[in-house]
Design a protein around this nucleic acid. Structure first.
Lengths: 338, 338
DNA sequence: GAAATTAACTAAAACGTTTAAGTCACTTTG
DNA sequence: CAAAGTGACTTAAACGTTTTAGTTAATTTC
């Protein structure tokens, strides 16, 4: 079954040199004669030798792995992963993907497990506003993605949520809506705070009073089903109000699906009876009926930049903070108010 | 920035014992007195010690990592990843996720990189019918997922594609359809072969002749956009036929979306003008209008079972082959023929 | 033409574990 | 009461690399 892999020593014996020379050849250290290089390379090929990265990483204190900790394997983070993988190819890193399931305890455990693996760095989408005992983050360079934490100067690659939310809300306002329902995820993460802020800023800019009953948190629970259900309940709650909203803005993909489900169940038609703006673009939104206006996140790019930031952090201790612009894609789901 | 982590040696010094004793305590070897165990554990806590997995894996020849190689980061494989992660928690493994982008060359490279990392095993969704030089697979135990390869007795966890496809086709036939368009992915993978077979079996069972023009391969290209486009083109081609299909069966998620897009562009209504069955269930299919009848794959369960099969393979050299049943979920998208 | 430099190597230590093989002071056994 | 065990340790080797500090012979320098 599992054969013993050849080692440097085997190659050295085959090529009649010392293991140091083989190592030099492998690392292009330019200290061997052309003839020796050739002989060593032939031996490597003949034996099918490849490095043992465990040994290397023991020696160097660092593996060629980076850790990615996401709170959920949803399409948004999958696209981020895609970007991360693409950029990692350049640095010759592999990605260990772990799921914190929005649990702080699990997140901290995972940070521990990953740094035990001697990962070269960690890309983290934190589950809350704060990071636990700093001890852990001393072990591996860390870059935050999508979400920020308070009081720490860490590199973070995120979206400009305030602006994205502002633009979406403004669009609804321009279409004449005065009562706009906002469906947010958990209040414990920075994206929620920012998306709420953008909404409030937009209302303020038109001198419309913020009605807290129109702001619902649908993401207090974890897991796909629960988040969808959060969006569903949020709509149900809002529509029971004496003066229900004429438009709804759902600030993530799962909340959006739950919300649309509720709207459908209530036999309200989009955009005729209800205007709707969602978050996170996905192909199906282009083919659904109606097609959905959404705030699109540059998830792939975020992934790429996070890897880049990690590398920067490692090579020059430089802390990078980027807010990438969000794009409002107008489709059919928001009309003018009746 | 990066602090040196304490080692066994530091703990040993702190607790006034040898490193062997510390190691024994760490591994619950039951060779130390209760008092010593306590002292060692205190030292571990005090110093914030945790194992260096690189050293362990150098010694043991095996890391606590497993590799997952997918051809694409799509929702299907993401759900598989979810299942893999859940099951890995039990075995205390972490998952390195790599993307072969449906390229055989890349796939083989990745197998090499992962086994260089001394992964405990590899879960692979192969990009073609054959596996390259066997040399590679001797290095790490391997379990195939979703797709099979020829002439190799490897563990494989897959879906019963023939039956799933048979059931879907049969349903369309029962509804009176005689010309059913089939949209397949790349002919180079086993799922395509099987889904085609199920379709043919169903037609044969009703004595309906197979028309090759109704079988389109939409997945010869790689990448999300390209696959969707493949589905789109497939529909466009079929609808140009003198006698176009009255129903379409798209055999994966991306092809389905492309196909629906084309149908929409052609101003055909589902299910009034065209019946439709898709593949892979996703929440949006429940809220779209119409809702879609689909063949659902137990992706999460496949992930779990793959990890389990890997463990079985390692512990007892037992090769497991499983075909999990597919479920046809009937919704609104397929009606009776006019 | 002796001293210094260079090219092409090699020997050995080190990274942090695990483990086989001791050691030593006490029991236990027959 | 000598032999054999046992409990609680320790020593040192080994895993496969990288790297520092040599070594040796050939070549350059003045």
């Amino acid at each position: 079954m599992k054969k013993k892999r050849p080692t440097l020593y085997d190659v050295a014996k085959e090529a009649n040199v010392s293991i140091a020379t083989v190592s030099n050849v492998l690392n292009n250290k330019d200290e061997a004669s052309a003839e020796t290089v050739k002989r060593v390379n032939e031996a490597i090929k003949y034996l099918g030798y490849s490095r043992n990265e465990s040994a290397r990483s023991l020696k160097s204190g660092e593996s060629k792995l980076i850790g990615l900790i996401v709170p959920d394997n949803n399409p948004f983070f999958t696209e981020i992963l895609d970007g991360i993988q693409e950029e990692c190819e350049y640095y010759d890193w592999q990605v260990v993907v772990a799921n914190s399931e929005e649990s702080e305890k699990k997140q901290n455990q995972l940070i521990g497990l990953l740094s035990a693996q001697q990962v070269s760095g960690i890309i983290l989408a934190p589950v809350s506003h704060t990071l636990g005992p700093l001890k852990m983050i001393e072990n591996a360079p860390m870059v935050l993605i999508d979400r920020e934490v308070e009081n720490m100067k860490l590199s973070v690659i995120k979206a400009d949520n305030i602006d994205g939310s502002f633009k979406a809300t403004k669009t609804l306002l321009k279409n004449g809506h005065k009562r706009i329902g906002l469906i947010l995820a958990s209040p414990g993460i920075s994206t929620t705070v920012e998306r709420r802020q953008g909404y409030i800023d937009a209302l303020n800019s038109q001198n419309i009073k913020v009605d807290d009953e129109l702001i619902q948190f649908g993401g207090n629970y974890t897991g796909t089903k629960a988040q969808m259900n959060g969006g569903y309940q949020a709509v149900m709650n809002m529509m029971k109000l004496p003066s229900p909203p004429t438009a709804i803005f759902a600030t993530n993909h799962l909340l959006m699906m739950g919300a649309v489900k509720a709207i459908k169940e209530l036999k309200l038609r989009i955009p005729t009876d209800m205007s709707f703006i969602g978050f996170d673009d996905h192909p199906w939104q282009e083919i659904s009926d109606p097609t959905f206006t959404i705030v699109a996140q540059p998830a792939f790019e975020m992934g790429r930049q996070a890897v880049h930031a990690l590398h920067k952090l490692k090579s020059s201790e430089e802390v990078i903070s980027t807010s990438l612009p969000l794009q409002l894609i107008i489709r059919e789901s928001c009309g003018t108010v009746k």
